[in-house]
Design a protein around this nucleic acid. Structure first.
Lengths: 249, 249
DNA sequence: CACATTTGTTAGTCTCATCTAACGATGATT
DNA sequence: AATCATCGTTAGATGAGACTAACAAATGTG
């Protein structure tokens, strides 16, 4: 989707930002940066790096003398650190808050670091500051069945009776859409499916706090027809039973 | 930064995904999609849309008969809904969790919706499921000085004595790096600056839970030299006093 | 020192997404 | 029915970022 952007965060293309970041890291690690190493780190050919360096030189972001080691200008260092900081922040978010494995968190951060606005960064930092003073929050998330990571104690969505804090254990008020009648509406609270089925349901638009209207509901093996976000979807009963809802008050 | 991606989330370019999304929304809103409307929504020329439609038709994502209304195939609808769901999820995250204004949240979501991996989406949904059962968390964040949004009661970083929950009010253990001596180290807990200064400090890499080493510290008007994430930075005392830290135990 | 290997640059090509300009096709107006 | 405005398509150009292939420079080895 395209919304008209009000702020111009960066004047540089994403690839050029990546080169800057790569150079910064290479200099930090080895004390110098060479075309070959940049090419390897970014998984492009050396020829491509040469061209990029000329552009970065024209933008006064690197000190580029042909066939010599490459250094960042002050301006280039600042730009690199700006991106790198976003990378670290996003990585921490996906790893520490959402509980993703380090590598996946880093990859996700790579893809987003170029487009994180100042405002979103500010709010994200504030969220971390908040969490720093209320560490119980993340602990609670990590210990809840929904928040458990693969390898954790209550992973795989296995419900734990001790988890009173989050009260995610099935209770009277928790029903699946499989038991709803045609014409009824409800709000999704949780998708208990895992793996590919979970992803399929999410991709269809079935998210927490989304309204679901049941249109047709055959008994037994017949599919359940629902409306969600304006779209008509057909679900098997086995799938539908993985979507927990609450009836609006 | 570039990390080798293990999963191939999408086979489509971002612009093509945007066209799909735009068509989906236009059909939902008006019952049909025309080249002209797509061009307007995406802010490109009609010629560009024509070409994109040919590609989407080749990929069997739209039913494209020259000079007629454009409809999505089942496959196209699924792809569009996939992106749109990511858009909604990200928007809600930036709006409801981080407390950004609706428009800014939507813009940020636009920029990220194409690169959100299945795994990150899964974890993000789980986080929402968790928050649905522990709504006090977001309430606590929104009411803390750090989490207050512009317009909220304790916005602008004004500290509120009532906010005992988050204990963000200055306390004995809370000191700024301005009072640190050369050779001392500490961990950043909070950046109390706002606006451009805050952004500048963040961009330099000064984030919560980041280690800071003081290298040189002149008295009075002299700058404070610190190391942060391997970089040497010079800060004015007025700036340094906005960086709160705790000494490692 | 001569030659081979490694490293970097240049030239030319490709694809993608965009543009402008010109041209068809459709439909509305008088 | 003739004309005109709107809408869509085609053709051709541009700029970014990548590639290959060929060449040039630097570095090591016998």
């Amino acid at each position: 989707m395209i919304l008209t952007s009000s702020t111009a965060p960066s004047l540089m293309s994403e690839p050029l930002e990546d080169y800057l970041e790569t150079i910064y890291l290479l200099v930090q690690e080895h004390g110098f940066a060479r075309v070959k190493d940049i090419a390897k780190a970014r998984d492009v050919k050396a020829a491509t790096v040469s061209i990029a360096l000329r552009k970065l030189d024209e933008a006064r972001l690197v000190n580029y003398v042909r066939r010599e080691y490459i250094g960042l200008t002050t301006k280039g260092e600042e730009a690199a650190r700006r991106i790198l900081t976003r990378h670290r922040l996003l990585t921490r978010f996906f790893e520490e808050v959402l509980g993703m494995p380090a590598h996946a968190a880093g990859e996700q951060a790579c893809a987003m670091e170029h487009v994180l606005t100042d405002e979103a960064m500010d709010r994200m930092v504030r969220f971390f500051e908040f969490l720093g003073t209320c560490p119980s929050v993340l602990k609670a998330f990590g210990q809840c069945p929904v928040g458990a990571r693969p390898g954790d104690e209550h992973s795989c969505g296995a419900y734990s009776p001790e988890c009173a804090r989050c009260s995610l254990n099935p209770k009277e008020s928790s029903m699946s859409i499989a038991s709803m009648k045609p014409g009824q509406s409800a709000i999704v609270t949780q998708i208990t499916a895992t793996g590919a089925l979970r992803q399929r349901l999410l991709d269809m638009g079935i998210l927490p706090e989304t309204a679901i209207d049941v249109e047709r509901s055959g008994p037994g093996g017949h599919p359940l027809w629902i409306r969600c976000q304006g779209a008509r979807l057909a679900l098997r009963r086995a799938e539908a039973s993985n979507i927990l809802v609450r009836r609006p008050a």
